[in-house]
Amino acid sequence: MVKLDFNIGDLNFKNPVLTASGTFGYGSEFDDFLDVSRLGGIIVKGTTLEPREGNAYPRMAETPSGMLNSVGLQNKGIDYFERNIYPKLSQYKTNVIVNINGSSIDDYVALAERINDLDHIPAIELNISCPNVKMGGMVFGTNPASTREVTKAVRAVCLKKLIVKLSPNVTNIVEFANIVQEEGADAISLINTLLGIAVDIHKMKPSLSTVTGGLSGPAIKPVALRMVWQVARAVKIPVIGIGGIMNAEDAIEFLLAGASAIQVGTASFIDPQTSVKILEGIESYLVNKGFNDIEDIIGFINKPC
């Protein structure tokens, strides 16, 4: 048997394949296609204190090897989540992580406190990188001082493992990674989507109602991989790689570049079974290469020859 598990602090994940927030609903959307409990973890849809309707339609545009979205954190709020979604999520035998979003530091703190009470949620992912909301989101994650302030404030109250999800829309990603590590994050996930636009030349209008949206899919993979590599070399806490991972080969690239785990995002839209296929693919890669422990390949490209 190959050892596939990894830890964030004392929180164990049975394998390194997680699903990215906003691409896997609340798990149940995928129950017909796979056994969600096989995954290392799922990060559920971005959650806010109050319900949000999200942005106007159209909020998606297909682009070369990817897609732009400007969903804008549509969700029913933490009360609804706790009452109606959390009980079902508790039945999965995997780590269920809530991605939290706020318009102010107080929002983030209040959400972290609410999650403290939920026994079956072992970690939160602090989303300071959503590009599709006017207030909060990326506004926090692209400013070093705000990144420090919000991480510190949430850390002060958060009793769960704290993962901070970074935005790629910055000049120096390592600066942000160092800040969240200093402020007590237990892990870093990156990258969120890259800010972009698309234009409908027939209608002579922006393709998205919001003009700008977040780019995801294989188009962003090399950028994501570069940032993961930079951050993994700079910090001591585990790094979770995200960005255009479509198959096991892509996932392994991230592991070799230094990610301890990965999140499958947009790929789940095209093949809802992508995450389990990646899990199987990583396992057979390790077997074929003669490794007994996934730990041995994490950051392999950085090791001296």
Binding site: E29, G54, Y57, R59, A61, N69, V71, Q74, F269, P272
Partner: peptide, 16 residues
């Protein structure tokens, strides 16, 4: 409507 996933995960194809 324009769809991403078709299974209710991406919330792209919304209608008011």
């Amino acid at each position: 409507n324009l769809m991403g996933c078709g299974i209710g995960a991406c919330l792209c194809c919304i209608v008011e």
